[in-house]
Write a protein that binds this DNA or RNA. Sequence first.
DNA 1: AGTTTTGACGTAAACGCTTACCGCGAATGC
DNA 2: GCATTCGCGGTAAGCGTTTACGTCAAAACT
Lengths: 343, 343
Amino acid sequence: MNIREVARLAKVSTATVSRTINGSDKVTRETKERVQRAIEELGFYPNTWARALGSGRSSLYGLIISDITNPFFPELVKSFEDIAVQNGQEVLVANTNYDAARMEVCVTRMLQRKVDGVAIMTSEMDGRLITEFQNRDIPLVFLDTGTAQKLTSNIVVDYAAGVDAAVEHIVGLGHTEIAFIAGPAMLRSARVRKEAFRGCLERHGIGTGWMEEGNHQVDGGHEAMARLLGRRTRPTAVLASNDMTAIGALGAIHERGLRVPEDISVVGFDDIQISAFTQPALTTVRLSRDEIARVAFRALYGARQEGGKGTEYAVPTSLVLRRSTGRAPGTRAKTGGLEAVAI
Amino acid sequence: MNIREVARLAKVSTATVSRTINGSDKVTRETKERVQRAIEELGFYPNTWARALGSGRSSLYGLIISDITNPFFPELVKSFEDIAVQNGQEVLVANTNYDAARMEVCVTRMLQRKVDGVAIMTSEMDGRLITEFQNRDIPLVFLDTGTAQKLTSNIVVDYAAGVDAAVEHIVGLGHTEIAFIAGPAMLRSARVRKEAFRGCLERHGIGTGWMEEGNHQVDGGHEAMARLLGRRTRPTAVLASNDMTAIGALGAIHERGLRVPEDISVVGFDDIQISAFTQPALTTVRLSRDEIARVAFRALYGARQEGGKGTEYAVPTSLVLRRSTGRAPGTRAKTGGLEAVAI
DNA sequence: AGTTTTGACGTAAACGCTTACCGCGAATGC
DNA sequence: GCATTCGCGGTAAGCGTTTACGTCAAAACT
C-alpha cells in the first residue's frame, strides 16, 4: 500500500496525491476530493520515514527533561505530547537523570533521529552541545536557562511574582519568623527563587536568617526541616523551593510532634498533583506545566517562520491556597485579614 | 554527509560501509577497521529514516500507557526507555487517558510511525485494534490482559501472592475487621486483586463484608474510606487496590480524627515512589515497574526470533513493610508476632 | 592442472515519498 | 486572432540507506 496505488485508483500522478496530502493549493477541489476518496477507500496513510527522507522534515520533536520520575515533569510531557500530536508531530522524550554525561546521550539521540526541534526543559546543558544543534539549524527552546538567539527561544518563569505572593500571604497571617528551604544552588531556577525570597523579606523588614538548602527531593526537604527544627528557636512558617521539599518538611514537622498549620505553616512551589492530597493539603505556588508545554511547542513550531529569531516567552506563577498555612501562633486574625482557604 | 562519502574515504563501496555499520560478518577485519576509521574521521552517523525506509525496520518501539500523570507509569516509562536506548532503539510513548477513543489515536500513531513492536500497558484495547497490529506482523506485549499467541506475549502479574502476603501480615497483627477498597470493576487487574482478597480472607475464616469500590485515584480512595468510616462499626485495617487509593484513605482517616496505624492500619498496592513519604509511610505491595519494563522489552525484542510464538511472562509482587500498619486496637503482641518494620 | 566452491566486496535496484521542472489547455491581454 | 500568462497536473530525479545478485580472486577440491 503506497502512494502509487492511490494515484492509480484516483487516476492521477503520485505528485498530485502527495500534494493533496500536504494540502498544497495547486490542486483543484474536485481532484482533491477524488484523491481523498481513493485514500479512504484504500485505508492509506503515508509512510512517515519516506516522507521524512523526501522532505528533510521528520515531524518529530525532542523533549529533554531531567527525570520523568520527578512529579514535576509528567504533566509537562503529557501536555507537550498532546499538542504535538494535535499538530501531526511526534515527540521523543529523553531523561538526563540530572547528569551532564547522560545529556550527551540525549543530544546524540535527537541528532540521530533528526528531530525538527528540541525543547530542553532541564539545565544540564553545556554550550558545546547547543552548538551541535545550532550548526544544524535545529530550533531550540529552553526553560529558564540560556538566552534567545537565532532559532533558539527561552521561556522565563516569573518566579519572583509567585514568591512575592507567598510571602505576602504568610506575612499577612502574622508570621515574622519565616524560613526558606532552597534548592540545589547549582540550579539557576533555585537560585532565583531564593533571591526572590530574600529580597521580598527585606522589603518587609524581616530578617532572612532562616535559610537551609535542600535538594528538591523529599529527603532533602526532610533533612533541611529537621535542621531548622533543631535550632534553639524555630520558625513559624516555611517556604520551600519546590513541593517535594515541602512534602519532606511536612514529614519532619509531624515527626517532631508539631502540627501544620497550627504550629508551623508550610508553602510549596510548583503545585504538583500530589500536593492537593498531602496531610494537610499544601498551599503552594502554581507553575502551570500546561502553559510551559504550550509555549514551548509554539516556540518550536513557529521558529522557522518569523525570521527564526528566538523570542523570550514569559510564564506566570500564582498562589494556590490550601490547608497548610494559617495564622502565626499567638496572633489574632485582624478584621479582613487573609486566611488560608481551600480551593 | 552520507554513506557515500564514507565509502569514498575508505575506498570501498557503500554496501561495505552499510555492512560494517550493521555488524555483518561478511567483511574482513581490516576492511571493517578502515571503514570505522573513515566513519570516525567524518563524524558520520547513519540517517535513521533512510535506514528505516531501506530495511523496513524503524528501530522504534511503541509504549502505550493510560496516563503518564499516574505515578504508576513514570518509572515504567523510564525503565523501558533506558533499556531500549541501550539496545539502540527509540520509544514512542502514548497516553490513552483511560479512553477507548484515544486508544484508537494511539494505535494510528504507532502504525504511522511503523513501530517495530508495541508494549500495551493499559487495558483500553479492543480486539479490532489488536488485529491491526497482527495483520502487519507487529509484535505485541500486554500487561495482564490478552493471551499469548503468534507474536504477542503477555505479562501476568502475581497479584494473588501480594494480596496474600498483605493479608497474612494484617491477620498476624491481630486484625479481624479487614476492609478492602477495590479498583474500578472494569479493570481486570482490579478484579483480580479483589478476588484474591476475598479468597484469602475466606481461607482465614474472616468475613468479607467490608468492601467498597474506589477508582484507583486519590479522591476515590478518600470517598470510599469516608463511606467505610460512616458505617456503624469500622474496620481496623484497610487494604487498598492501589497506593493512590490508600493515600486517599489515609486522608479520610486523618480528617476523621483517627490515627494510622494506632486506630486503623492501611496497606496499599504498587509501591509508587511517594508512598515512602506519606504520613505515615505506607506499607504496600510492591509491583516492580522496572521488572515489567525489562520483561516487556525482552518480549518485543526477542519476538521475531524464537519462532515468534508469544510467551507468558510472570512478574512477582512482594510486601513492603513501613509505618502504616500496626497491631489491631485492643490486642497484645504475641511473642514472635509480626510487627510492621520500616525498610 | 582444471574445476568447483567459498568468501569478500561491488553494482544497482529498491524503499515511498517530495518537489523542481516542464507541458498543456484555458483564460487573459492587446 | 495571436501572443502571453496562469493554473493544474504530470514526469522524474532525488533523499540515504539496505540488500539481492553478480563478480572475481583465492582456496579447496578432483
